Simulated scan of single mutants.
Amino acid sequence: MVDLMNPNGEDTELLLMGPGESERSWRLNFDGFRRSEPKEKPPRGLHDCLGVLGTEDCVAEYYQQQVEMLEGFTEMDALAERGFLPGMSKEEREKTARSETLAIRISNFANMALFAAKVYASVRSGSLAILASTLDSLLDLLSGFILWFTAFSMQTPNPYQYPIGKKRMQPLGILVFASVMATLGLQIILESVRTLLSDLALYTIRTWSATVLENVNSLVGRTAAPEYLQKLTYLCWNHHKAIRHIDTVRAYTFGSHYFVEVDIVLPSDMPLREAHDIGESLQEKLEQLPEIERAFVHLDYEFTHRPEHAQAHS
């Protein structure tokens, strides 16, 4: 039993851990941090209506970020201890996938029947309003076809032509459909200047243009958010007690998922077999995260060298 001083200046006692608990003593542990009870906010004035953040709002936002970070660390602890993420079982996921497939098929058949009825009504009446509704149904059919085609492509892998899979078909399909939507919106602007007094066309262009930019970022290798990198670093450090240092943790977009590169430092005298097992098990653990498609773990014995694959500055 050891006497310690807590942050409030009071003496506390720390019980020595038994043999089973000493195995986890090298891991980072955030069990001592607890979320305080939320306090009732005072009534706000005009600045709250204008969207201006006050001092209390900034403090609340900061603590909310800390709570989310601790929740992410707890998720990483669950993965490290159980070897899998809590959630639906494989049978439940397959049942959900079948239900979604059935819903998509029903939606496509309904859209086809509705489109045929609107085409007939447009020809018979010659109404521009019905014609516009017919084009809207045509776009629904087009989006359904693109989603079906991308899903079918991802479910039919070809390891010879696509050695790392075809999961990047999804953002590519969304990119194609978003480009069509943005082009049609631009055409509406060029041909219907008077309708610009209403925001139907401008909203469509703005929304789908933002979708285009989002999917472009997912294809050019944009880095993950700092909060997600914190979770990965936490998982890597708690992976094995032999890890001496974490040199680099990178996560960048490659389609709709992330590629992860991790550099860890192990003792220089560690046998190759043991070092390989540590790196391989960390790679498998990282690839269990749903956001990660591939993970690469680099083993090193020191961290004073320059980073690998450093970008050349012109």
Rank of each mutant, 00 (worst) to 15 (best):
R34H: 10
P38A: 01
G18D: 09
P19D: 12
L70W: 06
E13S: 02
G45R: 09
M17S: 11
R27D: 00
S22K: 00
L50H: 06
T55I: 14
C58D: 14
H47N: 13
V52S: 04
T55F: 10
G72D: 10
E21K: 08
F73K: 00
S36C: 06
F73Q: 05
E40I: 03
L14R: 08
S25V: 13
N6H: 07
L16G: 11
L28N: 12
P43W: 09
W26N: 08
E40T: 11
R44H: 05
D48V: 10
L70A: 09
V67K: 15
E37D: 15
L46R: 07
E40G: 07
F30V: 04
Q66A: 10
E10V: 01
R35M: 05
M69G: 06
P19T: 12
K39V: 13
H47C: 11
F33E: 08
V67M: 10
N6M: 05
E68C: 09
E21T: 01
C58E: 11
R44Q: 04
C49W: 15
G32A: 06
E71L: 14
R24P: 00
Y63V: 08
K41A: 01
G18I: 03
V67Y: 13
L28R: 08
E37Q: 14
G45N: 11
D31K: 08
C49N: 14
N29S: 09
S22I: 04
L53K: 14
G54P: 07
V52Q: 02
R44C: 07
E61S: 13
E56Y: 06
F33A: 05
E71H: 05
V52K: 02
G32Q: 01
L16H: 09
L14K: 12
L70Y: 10
Y63K: 05
T12Y: 12
P42L: 09
F30G: 00
L15H: 11
S36M: 07
G18E: 07
S36N: 05
Y62M: 02
G18H: 04
S22G: 04
E21F: 05
L16P: 13
Q66G: 07
G72I: 01
L16S: 13
F30P: 00
L16N: 15
L16M: 12
K39Q: 13
M69C: 10
G45Q: 04
G20T: 04
S22E: 15
G9H: 07
M5A: 11
R35T: 14
F30Y: 11
G72R: 03
E13F: 02
R44E: 13
M17H: 04
R27K: 08
F30S: 03
L70E: 01
C58K: 07
Q65C: 11
Q64P: 00
F30D: 06
S36L: 11
M17I: 03
L53G: 06
R35K: 14
R27N: 00
K39R: 14
F73D: 02
R35Y: 09
Y62K: 03
T12Q: 14
F33M: 09
